[in-house]
Write a protein that binds this DNA or RNA. Structure first.
Lengths: 331, 331
DNA sequence: CTGAAAGCGCTAACAA
DNA sequence: TTGTTAGCGCTTTCAG
């Protein structure tokens, strides 16, 4: 029952009658070395069930083969698609991926990043809460890519909700709504800013007054206050910062016996898990989250000088579209 | 703009005028060494912003400081609580945690585990799809803890749904239901087996006939077939393998214009995100998922011989309870 | 193309 | 208690 010593590169080398360095090359330098010996070595490695020790590889090569994905809250379904996408892509690139929950705290986010920078080749920040300053400084220590956050000089992927917001306003206007209010998320949220700007622009285009209520916290529980505020505003329709908040709002509306969409139309953002089966099913902005995840890893690979990466674009903008369900109707 | 060489243990040692090994001890062996020098060294390390290179630590100590959590599908909200719990606990224990998606494939699960075993101190398998044989063999190569899966000899945490199932049946019986059907998940699922057994037992206790329909796949999309099968069975109530399936079923029922709970009462399992805001809100079995995650890490720490771990229990059984919402009513 | 040798940063015997 | 000395398993010069 003694654990047998794991097989090392030396075992393979001995068995093949070559030097360890030759094995190293045969295994991890595609084009080089004699093809015949390389195949022989690979066969032996497979036969011996050799698995390279990644710590040792990292220590001597400087590349850890690991990236991190930082999210503000693992249990926020908004990240589902992004997580999927990054995992797909990093698996395809042979990278390990660590998922880190920053608990919505910029301090924790920074600490984690600093503490782990030595064991990571790079990191993807999905909805970073860090200040622009902090981000730029950290980017000097470890390759960074952001998602839904645009910082000068940092490669980023943004799901372009402004585009979708315009569609949403169009949709509401065509249903006869003239009084549309934006339900704001946290002031510090980059996405919230972007969405509010888009809202204003779209409203102006249609000659509507632009108003907002809030700011409200991201969570479902803020929906209560949000619903009351919207009702109070007298608007006939609202566009909500995100689906979590929108679903909370719907719940409160049901409690108060307010008909949706009869008395109030509601549009969410993100099309998260649940948006299609809440009551009523939510009209919302859908975006290619998985694709965003994949794109982020691609950009990171680019930053790492990986040849497998596509041409390094600095910023990727992904389109959103409106998914109409049952929470919107005639004014 | 050249990256400054990261500070190593030698830099700290030089600055403190001691040997590297002394620094190593001062930093990672709590009780030993002269407290005065230890504090001095720690101060210098902090001042120099020294971060130990975990690869090097791993290489020379054999401990990687990393564990993995394997789930069949990251985007299944059932894992929310578990992920939270394990992350909390591993962070508290100073361990890094990798989240791995096995895509519901036993082969992939095994491969990942084998491939990563050298870079992990241990792994937690949430709903493993591996055979008992495979699990036992793998456990010989890397410390393993299972969640919701009981395998002889492996430490495990199980959320005891049988207990909750009994409550559910009790609830339905007291509402006057005499014809209750179990909507089965995949035959190979350990939880499904456990729930079906519990169902039979509870039904027998009340002198009811026990029937089931299915098996159905885990996903929401299987809800359509499941709903039709339940309706066909003529039962007035059903207990569904999991909430995902139950929500799918609810959707189909609404499509077919079947009143819930008027014509059919529905009970789910797991109380996932969404169970409270679907339509109608789902009566379901709630369990302490976060606690399960924490317990799993504790057990693993025990297996690793970590002194911080509580007394090593081999199996942890966590209770569930019925959360009554609006999908159940009088027969 | 391949081998020899040095060393990545750290920990763990062993000596002092 | 502290310093000295070997490696951990791999990659990477540099020779051959």
């Amino acid at each position: 029952m003694t654990a047998p010593r794991p097989v090392t590169i030396n075992d393979v080398a001995a068995r093949a009658g070559v030097a360890p360095s030759t094995v190293s090359r045969a295994l991890s330098e595609p084009g080089r070395g004699n093809p015949a010996t390389r195949e022989r070595i690979r066969a032996i490695a497979r036969e011996l069930n050799y698995v390279p020790n990644s710590q040792a590889q990292a220590l001597s090569s400087g590349r850890t083969g690991t990236i991190a994905l930082l999210v503000s809250d693992v249990t926020n379904p908004f990240y589902f698609g992004i997580i999927r996408g990054t995992q797909q892509m990093s698996k395809a690139a042979g990278l390990a991926e660590v998922l880190i929950d920053t608990e919505d705290s910029p301090d924790l986010e920074g600490d984690m990043l600093r503490k782990m920078r030595r064991s990571l080749d790079g990191a993807i920040l999905a909805s970073s809460r860090l200040s622009e300053r902090a981000l730029i400084r950290l980017a000097g220590e470890i390759p960074l890519v952001t998602i839904n956050r645009n910082v000068r000089g940092l490669p980023s992927v943004v799901i372009d909700s402004p585009d979708g917001i315009a569609q949403a306003v169009e949709h509401l206007v065509s249903l006869g709504h003239r009084d549309i209010v934006y339900v704001s998320g946290p002031e510090t949220s980059w996405s919230n800013q972007a969405r509010w700007h888009a809202m204003r622009k779209a409203a102006a285009k249609h000659g509507l007054e632009f108003r907002r209520v809030g700011p409200f916290a991201r969570g479902r529980s803020s929906g209560t206050a949000a619903a009351d505020a919207v009702l109070n505003s007298g608007a006939t329709a609202c566009v909500v910062f995100n689906d979590l908040l929108a679903i909370g709002l719907l719940t409160r509306l049901a409690e108060r016996g307010v008909a949706v969409p009869g008395r109030l139309s509601v549009v969410g953002c993100d099309d998260i898990f649940g948006a299609d089966f809440c009551h009523p099913p939510l009209t919302t902005l859908s975006g290619p989250a998985e694709q965003a995840g994949r794109a982020a890893v691609s950009l990171l690979l680019g930053r790492l000088g990986d040849p497998r990466a596509p041409a390094a674009r600095r910023a990727v903008l992904l389109p959103t579209h409106l998914t109409v369900r049952e929470s919107t109707g005639p004014a």
